[in-house]
Amino acid sequence: MNNLKKQVLIFQLNGEPMGILADPAESLLTILREKLGLYGTKAGCGKGECGACTVLLDDRAVNSCLVPAGKVQGRKVETIENLSQGGKVHPIQEEFVEKGAVQCGFCSPGMVMSAHALLKENPQPNPEQVRVAISGNLCRCSGYKQIEEAILSAAEKM
């Protein structure tokens, strides 16, 4: 019944062109999960406080729950699903497992995407830069130590 508000949104999603009819005021998170079935991006608060819904918008980490869908028009969106395609696992993900950085795993997709954005911009970060980059991603399980180790180790290997 709200079709009047809907627009055709065209953007690049995980390297492929995507066009959908959606309410531009809906959050990108809702579009990804409920319209496109990309459930890898998690929803922990819906208010930009926890970082579980982190995706890359034009290579920068954003809380997808705070991004109105209309804002992705003509831009590039990357989600966790893009990192392990074709049977290959991204080195960040490999190091997350190797270092024991995954416990309940609910923060992991968002955490991996924040790390991915960091390493795109700064391929050799120091520990402090890693901590700053993931400071918007809450994790209640890990105390962040093994996550930090994983990201530093991935940076070395990439």
């Binding site: 459930y39 890898g40 966790i80 990192l83 795993g105």
Partner: peptide, 17 residues
């Protein structure tokens, strides 16, 4: 580690939500 960590880190694990 339990193999489940791989589905978690790749976003494939299915949670209640």
């Amino acid at each position: 580690q339990s193999p489940e960590v791989w589905s978690k880190v790749t976003g494939k694990a299915v949670y209640g939500i």
